[in-house]
Design a protein around this nucleic acid. Structure first.
Lengths: 193, 193
DNA sequence: ACAAGATTTGACACGCGCGTCATTTTTCTG
DNA sequence: CAGAAAAATGACGCGCGTGTCAAATCTTGT
């Protein structure tokens, strides 16, 4: 495996990502990927043995990226309230972006029940986010920006709301206004008490 | 179509429901249903032309049932706080029942459908629930049980949390304790202010 | 330039799910 | 009870997705 091979594998991964975004998880066939990549059937199997294998690799790449984004957000040391507001804005953008997200594919994948929970991408993301928010709230309380008895519960609550909004966005449709109202409600509760 | 036919159709519907619960939506084939019903392939096609048609019928039956359950809950005129607590308990039971629910199949189905929002089962359920909760909160405020500035926002918030818990239960796993804590958090916010 | 090695191709065989329909079985009716 | 009508059967043809592999093509080293 030279760097040539690695580059091609990366190309396939990135192309497949677009396919998963467009068609979800279950609807994607090797043929779809082959055509999107403009390579041969056998060529694809040289790198990935199944759509599942491919999707796992795409997810891992995605996790890498979003982890970087998280780190970047944490580095900025504005006030906790500002950072939290920014975080909510990011989430809003993400969950309203129906045409350019792996969310549906990821859910579909998670629904498939016969596989190890070891690599549970969703859970990991969720727990990470809870930790970050909890930390923000605790800081906010310390500097007097927030009022909150139980930062952990509050953080988890916020994440459940976001999960709810996310799944709602992809199953029943959610307007930008609704999301705004919900986000405002979340912030307001922290600032009021 | 005599009543005999109708009875058989009902039998197929109920049997198919179990299959959808067990295998989700996308993984169900006509063969699965045929085998579960112990009828012939052609026999099934006499009643349903596709798994989609079948699932829609199952959903409709399900909606009928839960609507009845809702009505029943509303009839009881205990105090708003009690009714809300009861409602949350019901939701908890429902979302922890991983092995006996159409939730996953319904999500999978919702992911597929692009156009007909007309028959959006999830949205309808959600909006109905918001209305009920909003009403409960308003009543609760009136009799002094609850403190809440914006019952509509609060109600919607509760439902988003429940949605978040629901999807979490089926994708990352949620313990009973977690759900309890979350429910308590929701109630507490209404009683404190 | 040439051969050995590495890479890529796409035709192929296989399995599966679908929807049909000629045939058989059951039920109805006079 | 016979004949008609209705209901049920399951074998069949079709399309599609899968994974493979011998052959073709491209890359190296000399």
């Amino acid at each position: 495996m030279g760097k040539k091979s690695e580059r091609k594998k990366q190309f396939i991964r990135e192309t497949a990502r677009k396919v998963f975004i467009e068609k979800g998880y279950k609807n994607v066939t090797m043929k779809d990927v082959v055509e999107a990549c403009e390579i041969s059937r056998g060529g694809l199997y040289l790198y990935y043995g199944s759509t599942t294998e491919l999707f796992l690799d795409v997810l891992q790449m995605e996790a890498q990226d979003t982890d970087d984004a998280f780190s970047e957000a944490v580095v900025n040391n504005a006030s906790p309230a500002d950072i939290l507001a920014l975080f909510l804005q990011e989430q809003k953008k993400e969950l309203l972006r129906k045409e350019d997200t792996l969310a549906v594919a990821t859910y579909e994948f998670a629904f498939d029940r016969e596989k190890p929970d070891k690599e549970n991408y969703l859970l990991r993301q969720f727990q990470e986010a809870v930790l970050i928010i909890e930390h923000l709230i605790t800081e906010g309380v310390r500097v007097g920006e927030f009022v909150c008895d139980d930062p952990h519960a509050a953080a988890r609550n916020i994440m459940y709301v976001i999960e709810g909004l996310k799944i709602s966005a992809h199953t029943m449709g959610v307007t930008e206004q609704t999301v705004d109202e919900e986000m405002r409600y979340l912030m307001q509760r922290l600032t009021n008490g």
